[in-house]
Nucleic acid binder design. Structure first.
Lengths: 97, 97
DNA sequence: ATCGTCCATCGCCGATAGACGATGAAGGGT
DNA sequence: ACCCTTCATCGTCTATCGGCGATGGACGAT
């Protein structure tokens, strides 16, 4: 769990996640254009996200495709929620359904 | 948000959070006894958690008191949930109530 | 006043993260 | 064949993390 959270604990990677989900095009280049970071840096962040299991990677020829693993991301969220609940079961945070 | 998640992205700090919430006694010493880490290290982790706003600190004489800020913790969880939702609004993770 | 306890802080260190440029591999276009 | 684009990887640099022991301050007890 700490590993997943560590992957999320960087502003650039959160931006990358948003970008990945916002656009149908999920190439590394796409992210680089929007993020004002060097291509190597973005590639590195993507690698971290993939290794954390939060992003899936498909090598479509040389056009690499990255996609958010929604289930995994939701899983992290659920884990965190579980931690919150285990820490303070009597505390009921408002949930917006 | 990344800051909060960074504070959570360390196994020791997660353990500390659990310990803080499990016990009514929230002294630094208490945590040290249960965590097999040096006192200075625990104090450092506590400081990080406090700076992240996840733990509240009350200097009760020399007996320092640490307590989980349930609302803040729930807030992080909510933020993450929000991120998940914004990333994939059509995706409905199973919630176990 | 002196000791012991609890705690925060400092200094130090090895390891890791995060950024970059350079390089090379893989393909597409001409 | 040649070039251009895309991308991953490598090497390097700096900054930060994470751990520890040591130190010193604050306080209670004797």
């Amino acid at each position: 769990m700490a590993l997943r959270l560590a992957a999320l604990s960087h502003p650039a990677r959160i931006e990358i996640l948003k970008r990945l989900s916002a656009s149908a095009c999920c190439s590394c280049r796409e992210v680089v254009d929007h993020l004002d970071l060097a291509q190597s840096t973005v590639s590195q962040h993507l690698k971290i996200l993939v290794e954390a299991g939060l992003v899936r990677f498909e090598a479509d020829r040389q056009r690499s495709r990255y996609a958010v693993d929604h289930a995994a991301l939701a899983g992290v969220s659920a884990s965190l929620t579980e931690l919150v609940n285990s820490c303070c079961p009597s505390f009921s945070p408002k949930r917006h359904d």
